[in-house]
Design a binder for these strands. Structure first.
Lengths: 213, 213
DNA sequence: TAGCTAATGTTATTTACTTCACATAATATA
DNA sequence: TATATTATGTGAAGTAAATAACATTAGCTA
């Protein structure tokens, strides 16, 4: 098996292919071509094949791909052939929304601990979880073998929370605070910035208007 | 002024520089170099200068950039030198979180209409807004001159909602449903997929584990 | 005012990513 | 069984983006 560096764009698309394949499978589709996948998710057929080629050969020439098989392969590649327990810090509205977000469960993620340092929030329930004080993090992490943490705090708290998460053993962090975190190399971080995409839209709208003038 | 095509990655970074500059400005910093911006947001100094070069010359050789000026320029480039009214469909937990999200207001965005087709949700209040039925959309859009819509519905409703938004005149859509939308060319769409980034993390954790074995 | 230092703006280089094009292989058909 | 058709997998070509390198210019110092 090849060990080329895999572009992050490829991993992103793989995640999208994977979900598209789940949908096909639910709809009873058993076979699919790179062209159909491409149409379904809005990329080129060559792109689909190239992306898959980083990880092996999954199709049959002249035929296409078996939906169930390819779905399982993509899930496995993404590390989703297993269950992942997560912790989340920040029991505000965003934290609440993330805890109740179905999309995570559907992909094998479970939030097993919600933390906050606000005394008015500690003890409240979200689904079947109680919001806990930060000091409880090490215990939860140990009990549930947690490696990934989600930050849904106000911006000002994010860096401190990230540092504490790492002290508690987190190996990866998903950060919703609009602030670049400063973390050691061995920790994987990805940011979800809710307003950046919105600003790409305003940029493009502005650009269009300018061209019409 | 050059009219090269601007890479989307550049626009994304511009949004991040812009917020970083706002922070510097709030902290009373008046001058900054490309190297300092680079350190602050985690890119290379050359990248910062290259990104800015798409839009003009904003610095002084040997000196650096005036923070307030560059902040204003970046905001203007992104189309954020004005106010943007938004509508949102889907008054669930995610919709609620987005309506109350400070990050939008801080960048000049206001959600002026929240819609749902669920009768149990219509009439409820979010901040100072009442959740309205879908039929009210055209009126709100007209009254507030809205061009951008946010989709925070369950996946199954997203495509239909997007179509209706466009009928109501939306020119751009920010889609939180994990589904590629099928829309006419002239409509700008960006997806915020909450679990894709999480799956990049699990991919990377899996990859690391594999390499250690 | 001449020389030094610092940091921009920009060209050249390198690297990364995407698309193209086609050889290969599987199935269907006559 | 030969032929036509379809769609994969992949090397080559093309495009785009990031990095490096440097010429330029502002400000400082003696």
């Amino acid at each position: 098996m090849k060990t080329l560096r895999v572009p992050e764009a490829t991993v992103t698309r793989l995640s999208i292919y994977s979900r598209y394949l789940e949908r096909l499978d639910r709809n009873g589709v058993s076979s699919v071509s790179s062209g159909e996948i491409a149409d379904g998710v809005g990329v080129s057929p060559a792109q689909v094949r190239k992306d898959l080629a980083y990880f092996g050969e999954f199709g049959t020439r002249g035929v296409g791909y078996n939906v169930k098989d390819l779905m399982r392969y993509t899930l496995k590649i993404l590390g989703l052939d297993r269950h992942w327990n997560l912790i989340l810090v920040g029991a505000g509205n965003l934290g609440y929304a993330l805890c109740t977000y179905r999309g995570f469960n559907m992909r094998g993620f479970s939030i097993v601990g919600v933390f906050d340092n606000d005394l008015t929030k500690i003890g409240k329930r979200i689904n079947d979880l109680e919001v806990l004080p930060m000091e409880s993090m090490p215990e939860i992490v140990k009990d549930h073998n947690v490696r990934i943490g989600i930050i849904a705090t106000p911006t000002r708290a994010a860096q401190e929370v990230a540092d504490y998460m790492i002290k508690c053993g987190m190996q990866a962090i998903l950060n919703f605070a609009p602030l670049p975190l400063n973390l050691p190399e061995h920790v994987e971080v990805r940011n979800v910035d809710l307003s950046v995409k919105l600003e790409i839209l305003t940029f493009n709208l502005g650009f269009k208007s300018a061209q019409n003038v």
